[in-house]
Simulated assay, not measured.
Amino acid sequence: MGKSDDYYGPTAPGTTITVSDPSDSETAAVAAGLHELEAESAHWYSYFQTFDFWAVILLGQVLALCITGTNTFSTFLANLGTSIPAFQTLFNYVLLTLIYLPVCLYYHGPRKLGGIILRDGWKYFILSFLDVEGNYFTVLAYRYTNLLSAQLLNFWSIVCVVILSFTVLRVRYKWAQVAGILVCCGGMGVLLASDHITGANGGPAANAVKGDLFGLLGATLYGLSNVFEEWFVSKRPVYEVLTFLGVFGVLINGVQAAIFDRQSFASATWNGAVGGYLVGYTLCLAIFYSLAPLILRMGSAAFFDISLLTGNFWGVIIGVHVFGLAIHYLYPVAFVLIIVGLVVYFLAGSMLGDSKKPWLGDNQEGGVAGIGTAKLKALNTARKKALVAQETGAV
């Protein structure tokens, strides 16, 4: 039986589709698996009962802890008189290159990798540029503005992600997703209010206007890079994306560090403690970059950004135990609000959550069948329930 609309149109759950052309089998399996999964969304809480929901919530908190770790090590470095934002991030891109380039060469081979560079190299360069500059200008903002203003500007990255996802990637947000984002932002607002009440806003700003403009630029670049990376990891293997993010990141960040960090590098403190803090910073950031594609596949760039809001709470825990800060009673309230917002985000969602990407097609034919993708979930479901079979045997 040849290709027909029967493979892509509605089918009853549990129906087996037969194909004779092996080239059609994967597409047919995905179509059948997606329909089976979406048909299981019988209740508003269906997604909450899945492994994916708890995995994506946990991943978000691990990433928030990684960001807290990088901020903590950056504070240690600054306290020792070593403030080299571009140079200290360079090691992260070097480590990503050392880890993922050999993996990419193993799977693709030199010839195929060369073809990818010629075809898509400019796209990966843009992704790396947005990522490097987002890091740089966000750190730079803290030099000129106070902590309260810098944290407020973090909201702008969420706004950018939502606008870009809606206009460019054709994502259509449900009422629960909008409500979840607003609840999370409300929790962040409570956190900022407590900082203002206690005076823990970083003190007076050296140049508030300049710092706020840098922060706004950094948040915009972050939003752009997050959406772009979500698009990339839904279509390409994670090891490929991280390879090019690392390689181009080394080049871009290296040039930037050579230009802008020379004076800071010369006057910085260099000892064993600084070396240890740089190692800790690099490891936290490398783990963050390695896990981020999974949450972008299983969730979305919007969920990714609002998950990181809890990093401010984890930062307070570090501050209390490491820097001797006092915790305000509103901090737990803010944390609970953000977590509730993350849960609300998935209300009335399907069993696929945000893993089914609209830009990949109805049957995710434009995507890669990688870990965390809706395409792989659909294929596994179809094979497990024998929804698709060839005339010569099961697929």
Score class of each variant (00 low, 15 high):
Leu285Ser: 06
Leu242Glu: 01
Leu63Arg: 00
Arg119Cys: 15
Val274Ala: 05
Phe76Asp: 13
Trp44Pro: 15
Ala389Tyr: 10
Leu130Arg: 01
Gln256Arg: 04
Leu251His: 07
Thr220His: 04
Leu58Asp: 14
Leu330Phe: 14
Tyr144Ile: 06
Ile181Trp: 00
Ser128Tyr: 01
Leu95His: 11
Ile158Leu: 14
Ala39Trp: 02
Leu285Pro: 04
Glu229Gly: 15
Val94Cys: 14
Gly372Val: 08
Val62Asn: 05
Asn92Val: 15
Phe303Ser: 03
Glu133Asp: 08
Arg119Phe: 12
Ala301His: 00
Trp175Phe: 13
Leu337Ile: 13
Pro332Leu: 13
Met351Val: 12
Ser234Pro: 03
Ile339Ala: 07
Val343Lys: 00
Leu80Arg: 06
Leu309Asn: 05
Lys112Cys: 10
Leu37Pro: 02
Val103Met: 13
Tyr100Ser: 00
Gln177Val: 02
Ala42Ile: 15
Gly180Trp: 00
Leu80Ala: 12
Met188Trp: 09
Tyr107Trp: 12
Gly202Leu: 10
Ala193Glu: 10
Tyr106Met: 11
Ser290Cys: 00
Phe303Ile: 07
Gly361Met: 05
Thr282Cys: 09
Leu291Phe: 02
Ala31Cys: 11
Gln364Phe: 05
Leu148Glu: 05
Gly186Ser: 06
Gly353Thr: 05
Ala326Arg: 11
Arg119Asp: 15
Leu96Met: 15
Ser300Ile: 04
Gly186Asp: 01
Gly249Gln: 01
Leu251Trp: 10
Phe87Gly: 08
Asp24Ile: 15
Asp131Arg: 10
Arg297Trp: 08
Ser149Lys: 03
Val183Leu: 08
Ala205His: 07
Val19Ala: 07
Gly361Ala: 06
Glu240Leu: 13
Ala200Trp: 05
Leu337Lys: 05
Glu133Gln: 12
Phe125Val: 11
Thr167His: 09
Ala273Ser: 07
Gly81Arg: 06
Leu148Ile: 09
Trp156Lys: 11
Cys184Phe: 04
Lys385Ser: 08
Val238Asn: 11
His43Phe: 11
Met188Val: 09
Gly372Leu: 03
Val103Trp: 14
Thr72Pro: 08
Val238Tyr: 01
Tyr345Asp: 00
Leu296Thr: 04
Leu337Arg: 07
Gly361Lys: 02
Phe248Arg: 02
Phe248Cys: 12
Val255Tyr: 08
Phe346His: 07
Pro22Asp: 12
Ile371Tyr: 08
Trp54Glu: 05
Phe166Ser: 13
Asp5Arg: 10
Ser41Gln: 08
Ala326His: 10
Tyr222Ile: 07
Ala150Pro: 00
Leu59Ser: 14
Ile317Asn: 04
Tyr142Ala: 14
Ile158Gly: 06
Leu213His: 06
Leu342Gln: 12
Leu80Asp: 13
Tyr144Phe: 09
Leu251Ala: 13
Tyr136Asn: 10
Leu285Tyr: 09
Ser300Thr: 09
Ser350Trp: 03
Cys66Val: 10
